[in-house]
Design a protein around this nucleic acid. Structure first.
Length: 213
DNA sequence: GTACAGATAAACT
DNA sequence: GTTTATCTGTACA
């Protein structure tokens, strides 16, 4: 299985977000390989999207968003968690897809070890479904850090591969933001037990893919 | 099952 | 000093 080509990411951000569902996120390290099937994502679309970091303009932090597609954009949130995004569209169009949840496929014990190490009380065995059902959790489970910011996903130990396409997709507003909540730019695999815990999961299923405003 | 407080670091004003 | 796209433990039903 080979990594997705750059052209896959050089498209409309909502289309990339949708097509990433079902794909495999792979990270190879000296400690072993961990793989998860992408089941939940969010689109962040340009300077006109108030929830996109690029709304603040081109800064040192947001620079990766303005770069070429197919590269990683990783940042620290709440002082202790990482969020992993894939940059989309061509240079000059700051946009990306946030990967929010994975269905663990390979290296489950490696994931469990990384996640357990971070918890205050690590005695209880973390259930499979809780290993990567959130943006901070999946970065921890796969060992994704700031070192992967600006990483070329086409030629690095961290990459995206084709996977099993979902049978159904649900679109909802994005999670954890205070602006741009009118845009239904979060989508997840319908019925998957591996999506993040969110009350938004109940917001009506079978919504068609929204158009860019 | 839902609700809330608190932890914590880097970029930006 | 403020902001940031989160997670966990504890409390209570």
């Amino acid at each position: 299985m080979s990594a997705l080509r750059r052209s896959f990411f050089d498209r409309d951000t909502l289309a990339v977000a949708h097509d990433l569902l079902g794909c495999r996120l792979v990270h190879e390290t000296p400690h072993g390989t961990t793989v998860g099937r992408i089941v939940e994502v969010e689109a962040y679309h340009g300077e006109d999207d108030p929830a996109c970091h690029a709304a603040a303009g081109h800064t040192a932090r947001t620079a990766p968003l303005y770069g070429p597609p197919g590269f990683g954009y990783v940042y620290l949130i709440y002082g202790m968690y990482h969020c992993f995004n894939v940059v989309t569209r061509g240079e000059g169009h700051p946009s990306a897809v946030l990967v929010r949840a994975l269905e663990p496929l390979e290296g489950l014990e490696r994931m469990r070890a990384r996640r357990t190490a971070r918890r205050r009380r690590g005695e209880a065995r973390i259930p499979d479904r809780d290993l990567a059902n959130g943006p901070g959790k999946l970065c921890d489970a796969l060992g994704i850090t700031l070192a992967h910011n600006r990483a070329d996903l086409a030629r690095s130990s961290l990459r995206v591969e084709r996977g099993m396409a979902p049978e159904g997709v649900v679109w909802t507003p994005r999670v954890g933001i205070t602006v741009g909540t009118d845009r239904f730019w979060r989508c997840f695999v319908k019925g998957s037990p591996h999506v993040s815990r969110s009350r938004l999961n109940r917001v009506l299923a079978d919504r068609p893919r929204p158009a860019i405003a």
